[in-house]
Design a protein around this nucleic acid. Structure first.
Lengths: 252, 252
DNA sequence: CCCACTCTTCCACTGGATGGAAAGTGTCCG
DNA sequence: CGGACACTTTCCATCCAGTGGAAGAGTGGG
């Protein structure tokens, strides 16, 4: 979401730059805000916004602010990478939530990031930092470690060559620590992320495999640090296997 | 999704026409199929597709077919009209599912259609005709009747002036029948849709109110015709009220 | 090999998109 | 009330991003 980068010359590039102004922290924006944050001239912004509204990609609320429209959500719901997986996994995620009573998350890998495709949390849940659609770096979360440990070697190399962002003093920040953590995941078949994003939670994660045995996603439970991770680990791993079977995976 | 309509002249119009080729029944498509179904010339289609891929709005799978990409899903996840509501409602929907063990759905109104924003179903659920993001006409579903009964008068008038599509021999197809059904909903405070879409199911629906008391959504349970609707009705209504409270509604 | 189908590339041309400037609207303050 | 300011909308001569027919490349089957 650049104001320091050159504005794209292509119309679609501009439209997507404009849509990128909307984030979880800025779910709505005025025309001037859209212009400022996108770097597009005001009248260009105005014209683009009007057309995006015509296509229901943007909506205008009562106070003159714009929000992402239903049409994008409908189209997004057709994305097999996210929602197909989510729908098949949901019953098992709910089972996991029922037996653990902790926050449950399902995530996939998109390049060097985790994308959360589902989260089930209680009404009075322990600190929640993710939502549907949100992203975090692979190295800093349980699901991310699982997805990275089983990712193609060139993906792993790229991740190890990337600066590892620090969230807490527990976050993995060196390539050697990450390499070691990934080896541990592959040896154990699961990951425990220890206060890497928040100092009050652990994340226990297990792989979800597609029909061909590839790790297509990861499921995790987030627990407060007072909770022993081994009380939820079997359920998380069982959930990962159940979803894998629902996706067509068979143990060889 | 027109091949009989003129192709838009504007680029954004063309892009959205192209994206509209993807449906629940056609989650992936080849370049030629996209060209054929959108009415856009092959080379235009090719160029648009390449750029949409660059923006992650489309993905290409291993067999050369295109699918809707993650980026649209991420953007759509920011749509307050759908997912904000969904996230607040999810715990209550899960409760409803636990106590009824039947399919639970949450829907909003978009003009003269129902848009389903959540569905929770068991692994061995009775016939499922809706999915997240899918649409049905207001007159033919429990949630649609609720949403229409409490919609602004001009919306109701427009619905009554529209041809009422028939799905089964039980579907409401005349304005008088619809007017009467809406009056019943407003009198009772809930709706029962009797085999209107599928001849083997009833849908029991109740309103979900926003902070100002407006009916912002509707929640329903779909049950097989052997099930007595009055066994689930109190739970559906309680769920509607619980979600309403979570949205800030207070009974006056 | 030929055929049918799908996908990719090319480029002279053009019309959809541009954005600075002006006009319009709304709010706040002296 | 008028002025200042911020935000939104409109206008239009200009221009360059987008166009699509045609040719070429690739694939699979007979």
């Amino acid at each position: 979401m650049p104001t320091s980068e050159p504005v794209p010359r292509s119309l679609l590039g501009r439209a997507f730059t404009l849509l990128s102004v909307f984030t979880a922290d800025r779910p709505s924006a005025t025309l001037s805000e859209l212009s400022r944050h996108s770097g597009l001239p005001l009248s260009t912004t105005h014209r683009l916004v009007q057309e995006l509204i015509a296509h229901r990609a943007l909506d205008k609320d009562g106070s003159g602010r714009f929000t992402i429209g239903l049409r994008l959500w409908e189209l997004g719901a057709l994305s097999p990478g996210a929602l197909d997986l989510r729908e098949r996994a949901l019953p098992y995620l709910e089972d996991l939530f029922e037996v653990t009573h902790h926050n449950v998350q399902l995530a996939i890998r998109d390049d060097l990031e985790v994308v959360y495709v589902e989260r089930i949390s209680a009404k009075d849940a322990v600190n929640v930092v993710t939502r549907m659609g949100s992203r975090l770096p692979l190295h800093a979360t349980g699901v991310g470690l699982v997805l990275l440990a089983y990712a193609p070697p060139e993906v792993q190399e790229r991740a190890l060559d990337t600066e590892l962002k620090q969230f807490t003093k527990h976050t993995i920040t060196t390539p050697n620590a990450l390499r070691s953590a990934l080896a541990t995941v592959r040896r154990d078949g699961y990951a425990i992320s220890d206060r890497q994003i928040e100092t009050i939670t652990y994340s226990v994660a297990a792989p979800v495999r597609g029909p061909g045995g590839d790790v297509a996603a990861a499921v995790s439970v987030v627990v407060p640090t007072q909770t022993r991770t081994d009380t939820v680990l079997p359920a998380v791993r069982a959930c990962g296997r159940a979803i894998s079977r629902a996706l067509g995976w068979r143990r060889v």
